[in-house]
């Protein structure tokens, strides 16, 4: 077999199952960056990978840990990885339990488990790769798709008639111990947030806005006079957002650490 190039810095390659590569993510997909940041965070904290369990559900993001992580992985039914992970953690509290899955999996079909796990406070780190669309099944409307955006099931000219979930605020309200939201390309911020999430006892939720070039950006192209449907320009820092009006925040994505609120806020 010819040498397959593994993604990310060399320090994480020991955590990757080389025989599962080349990976199946589309060109430009944000999920690879999430894979990289998660494993860098684990390496920087010096966790024993053999004591880590990675649960995921169904959808593109569920492939981040399974089959690519050379560790214990639990690729579950659609929407249920948090519930499976709850059983794992409670049955053996010595294990470091992660859930890495998408917005459709965790927040739509699995939404009830998400809020209840946040309330219950079982010690786990949940990384939600939020690409705001159903990627694997062909670009259908998600509960996180912004209002007016085009998907296979919210076609032009009207686009999405519904309002999206603000996942981080939802999980924060449900009682999570740690909640943060960042953009997939912001590796340093993301690694730091994942590390904090792991170190926080209780339910940690890191929402990562992840670009989906194939299903989301292709359906919502940047016109001559408009900016891309997803990019740095949409993000507003949590502190800055506090001084902005509701109208000014329309269509923006607020990022930062929501729980616990950082000092100086």
């Amino acid at each position: 077999m010819s040498e397959v190039k593994l993604p990310g810095p060399e320090r994480i390659h020991k955590f990757l199952r080389a025989e599962a590569f080349p990976h199946t993510f589309c060109l430009g997909c944000g999920h690879l960056l999430i894979m990289e940041s998660t494993l860098v965070a684990i390496d920087e904290l010096g966790l024993d990978i053999d004591k880590c369990v990675f649960a995921s559900g169904i959808g593109c993001a569920s492939w981040i840990p399974s089959p690519y992580f050379k560790a214990d992985t639990l690729h579950t039914t659609h929407g249920r990885p948090i519930a499976f992970a709850t059983g794992v953690k409670v049955a053996n509290p010595d294990l470091n339990v992660f859930v890495i899955s998408g917005d459709g999996d965790l927040a739509s079909i699995g939404g009830n488990h998400l809020i209840h796990a946040a309330r219950r406070g079982v010690d786990m780190t949940v990384i939600c790769a939020n690409n705001m669309i159903y990627g694997m099944t062909g670009g259908q409307l998600a509960s996180t798709t912004p209002h007016g955006r085009f998907t296979a099931t919210s076609p032009p000219p009207e686009g999405n008639p519904e309002k999206p979930f603000d996942l981080s605020r939802l999980v924060a309200a449900a009682g999570a111990s740690f909640v943060a939201r960042y953009f997939a390309p912001w590796k340093d911020k993301l690694v730091e947030a994942i590390k904090r999430g792991i170190k926080t006892a209780g339910f940690s939720f890191i929402e990562v806005i992840s670009q989906c070039p194939t299903q989301y950006l292709r359906r919502n192209p940047a016109g001559e006079d408009t900016k891309p449907a997803l990019g740095q320009h949409l993000f507003v820092d949590l502190k800055q957002a506090k001084s902005m009006t509701k109208e000014e925040l329309e269509g923006k994505i607020v990022y930062g650490q929501f729980v616990p609120e950082e000092e100086g806020d």
Binding site: A55, A83, G87, V90, N92
Partner: peptide, 26 residues
């Protein structure tokens, strides 16, 4: 032994399967 009252039956059986892979009869 550990007991969990879950949010529904779907999560109940899910947790049972997870616990079984953690090595505990469930």
């Amino acid at each position: 032994g550990n007991f969990l009252q879950m949010e529904d039956e779907i999560s109940s059986i899910a947790a049972v399967v997870g616990a079984s892979w953690a090595g505990v009869k469930s």
